[in-house]
Write a protein that binds this DNA or RNA. Structure first.
Length: 534
RNA sequence: GCGCCCGUAGCUCAGCCGGAUAGAGCACCGGCCUUCUAAGCCGUAGGUCAGAGGUUCGAAUCCUCUCGGGCGCACCA
C-alpha cells in the first residue's frame, strides 16, 4: 500500500534523526500520516515537524515545509523580544563567551626586526593580529600577544653600517654606503642624533655596535610608538637572540641529528625536508656557521609548545609563505603536533590616492609608513579599513575614501549610528522620558518587522563573534557592524523613537539602548572608538 | 617549471565546512530635512559567480584542467 511505503520512509527518517541526536525518540509513533481534509495540502500529510518540535512550541509561531524539503520555523516575536533584556542586562559582556575554555593561545604578529619604520603592510598585520587576539580573548581564550624579533645578525649589521655611513656623511667625512644598505631618511635622522650626542667622537670608532645599538633603540621606540598609536600593546617581546644564548638553537640541531633528520653537506647543515614530505632539503646552518632563519624559527616554535600553549596563531605576510611548511615540518620532527599551529597569511596592501595606486618599494625605503597613514586618517579609520577585507584578499586602501568625513566613509557610518543613539537618549532625557527599570521594559511593544529584524541581528551577535574568533576572521565583525548600522539608520528614518506614546517610547528607547551596546561592543572588538557625539 | 592565494554587478568586496530568488558599499540616475544629528534615508538599474569538465537530487561553494592577476620557490628574513 502506498501509504505504508511512505510511512516506512518517514519512520526511517525519524529514526535517523534520533540516532543523529537531532531529537529524542519520545515522539516515536506519535506523528500521523493522513490524507488531508482539504485540497491543496498534498496527497498525504504528516505532522512530523510539529510533533518533533512540540517540546518547544512556546517558541514557535508556525512551522511550514517549503520548497525542496525545508522545514521553515517561524518563531514567536516574544522570542526575539526577550533578547533585549539579555543585552541590556549584560551591557559590558554581551557578545563575550567562554567557548575558548581558557585555552592558552599565543598570537604572534608584526615581528618586524627593528630596521625601519612600520610600513602599511605591517600595519595591516598589526591590526589583524590585534583584532584576532581580541576576538579570542572575548571568547574565553587566554591570549598572549607576542612580538618576535631579532636584533642580531646580518640585517642589523647592515643597519649599523648604514647609520655609520650617514654619520660620516653628515660630518662631511668620506664614507661608503653599504650596497644593500637602508636608504630611508630615518637613518639620516638617527645619524644626526648621534652627532648631537657625540659630536664627531665616533668618527674613528672601529666597531659598528654603537651605530647599530643607537639605530635599534630609536627604531624600536618608533615602532612601539606607532603600535601604541594604533592601540596595540604586546604582552611579550621575544628576542630570537635569547634562543642562541640559551642553547636552544643548538639543541634543535642535536635533536634533528639524533632523529637522522639533519646532515652535513658542502660545509653546511641540512634539514632533511624530503623525509618529512617536503619537496626539498633545506640548509639550516650555512657554511659560514650562521644559521638560516628556519632554524631559530623551529626553535622558537618548539619553545611556544614548551611554554604550554594549546594553540599558536602566527600572522605572516604572504611573502613569508615559504617558511611555513619548513617550520611546521620541523615542529613535527621535534615531536610536537603541528595542527596546534595555525598560520594566517595576509595578502598585501595597496594604497590608492586620487584613484591612482601609490607606488611603494621597500628596498628604496620608498614606502608609506603606518605613521604617515595615521597622520592622515587616524587610528579608527586605519584599523577599520585594515579589517574590511578578509586576510586572503589583497587590500586596497582607498585614501580618498578614508579621509572623507562624510556619509561614504564606512567608519563614520558605523560610528554615527552609535552617536545618533546617544543623541536620542539625550533628547529623551531632555523631554523627561524615563527608561524605567529593565524588568518593566515593555518589549512586547516592539512588534514591527523592522524592530524584529534589529532584535534578530542583535541576537546573532554572540554567535558571530564566536565564529569570527574561531575562524580568525575579524572582517566579519566589520561587515556585521556596517549591516547593523544600516538597519538602524533605516529604522530611524522610518519610525520615531520618542513619541507621544509613552510606553512605546520606552520600549524603543530600550531597543536603542540594546543597539548602542551591540555597536559599542562590536567596535570595541575591532579596537575602534564609539563616540557619543559627532 | 613548482607551491600558496585571488578571479562574484562599472569599481571595491562579502558569501565559499554544498541547499530555496547570489548580497553590500561606492559610482550613476530620481526622490526625502518646520519634528530624536541629512556624517542619514527611500527608489531605479546593474550578474554566463573567469572558462571547461566532473561529483551530487542540488555547485559561486567540493574535485580536475585551462586562462588571467598576486606572492613565494636562497647557504636573505
Amino acid at each position: 500500500m502506498i501509504k505504508t511505503r511512505l510511512k516506512t520512509l518517514i519512520d526511517h527518517c525519524f529514526d535517523q534523526g534520533v540516532e543523529a541526536g537531532f531529537w529524542s525518540a519520545a515522539a516515536a509513533g506519535g506523528y500521523s500520516l493522513d490524507e488531508p481534509k482539504h485540497a491543496g495540502q498534498g496527497d498525504l500529510a504528516t505532522n512530523l515537524a510539529m510533533v518533533v518540535l512540540a517540546p518547544h512550541t512556546d517558541l514557535l509561531e508556525r512551522v511550514e515545509v517549503a520548497g525542496p524539503g525545508f522545514v521553515n520555523c517561524y518563531l514567536n516575536k516574544t522570542v526575539w523580544q526577550s533578547v533585549l533584556p539579555e543585552v541590556c542586562a549584560n551591557e559590558a559582556t554581551f557578545g563575550r563567551s567562554d567557548i575558548g575554555k581558557a585555552k592558552k593561545v599565543l598570537v604572534e604578529f608584526v615581528s618586524a626586526n627593528p630596521t625601519g619604520p612600520l610600513s602599511v603592510g605591517h600595519g595591516r598585520q598589526a591590526v589583524l593580529g590585534d583584532a584576532i587576539a581580541g576576538l579570542l580573548s572575548a571568547t574565553g581564550h587566554q591570549v598572549t600577544r607576542e612580538y618576535y624579533y631579532n636584533d642580531a645578525g646580518r640585517q642589523m649589521r647592515v643597519l649599523g653600517e648604514s647609520t655609520r655611513a650617514r654619520y660620516l656623511e653628515a660630518l662631511g667625512l668620506p664614507f661608503t654606503f653599504p650596497e644593500d644598505g637602508y636608504q630611508g631618511q630615518y637613518i639620516r635622522d638617527i645619524a644626526q642624533a648621534l652627532i648631537e650626542e657625540h659630536g664627531d667622537g665616533l668618527k674613528d670608532e672601529p666597531e659598528v655596535t654603537p651605530f647599530k645599538n643607537k639605530a635599534e633603540r630609536v627604531i624600536f621606540d618608533d615602532i612601539n610608538t606607532t603600535l601604541h598609536r594604533l592601540g596595540i600593546v604586546f604582552d611579550n617581546y621575544y628576542n630570537e637572540h635569547s634562543l642562541y644564548e640559551n642553547g636552544l638553537v643548538d639543541d634543535v640541531v642535536a635533536s634533528l641529528r639524533e632523529k637522522g633528520l639533519a646532515y652535513d653537506q658542502d660545509g653546511a647543515v641540512w634539514f632533511k625536508g624530503t623525509e618529512c614530505g617536503l619537496p626539498q632539503d633545506r640548509v639550516i646552518i650555512k657554511s659560514t656557521g650562521e644559521p638560516t632563519y628556519r632554524l631559530p624559527d623551529m626553535a622558537y616554535h618548539r619553545e611556544k609548545f614548551k611554554r604550554g600553549f594549546d594553540w599558536m596563531v602566527d600572522i605572516f605576510g604572504s611573502d613569508h609563505i615559504a617558511t611555513v611548511p619548513d617550520v611546521l615540518a620541523g615542529v613535527k620532527a621535534l615531536g610536537y603536533d603541528p595542527s596546534k599551529v595555525t598560520v594566517v597569511l595576509h595578502q598585501f596592501v595597496t594604497l590608492l590616492r586620487d584613484g591612482q595606486q601609490v607606488k611603494m618599494s621597500t628596498r628604496k625605503a620608498n614606502f608609506v609608513t603606518v605613521d604617515e597613514l595615521l597622520d592622515e586618517v587616524g587610528a579608527d579609520v586605519a584599523r577599520f579599513f585594515f579589517l574590511m577585507r578578509k586576510a586572503d584578499s589583497q587590500l586596497e586602501f582607498d585614501l580618498d575614501l578614508a579621509t572623507k568625513t562624510s556619509q561614504e566613509n564606512p567608519v563614520y557610518y558605523v560610528q554615527y549610528a552609535h552617536a545618533r543613539l546617544h543623541s536620542i537618549r539625550r533628547q529623551a532625557e531632555a523631554k523627561g522620558v524615563v527608561l524605567g527599570s529593565l524588568a518593566d521594559a515593555p518589549v512586547g511593544r516592539l512588534t514591527l518587522d523592522d524592530e524584529i529584524l534589529l532584535l534578530k541581528a542583535m541576537a546573532g551577535f554572540p554567535g558571530l563573534v564566536q565564529g569570527a574568533a574561531l575562524d580568525l576572521a575579524p572582517h566579519r565583525l566589520v561587515f556585521f557592524l556596517q549591516d547593523l548600522a544600516g538597519q538602524f539608520h533605516s529604522y530611524y528614518n522610518k519610525h520615531r523613537i520618542v513619541s507621544e506614546d509613552e510606553e512605546l517610547s520606552r520600549a524603543r528607547l530600550w531597543l536603542a539602548m540594546g543597539l548602542r551596546i551591540v555597536l559599542r561592543n562590536g567596535l570595541a572588538l575591532i579596537g575602534v572608538s564609539a563616540p557619543e557625539s559627532m
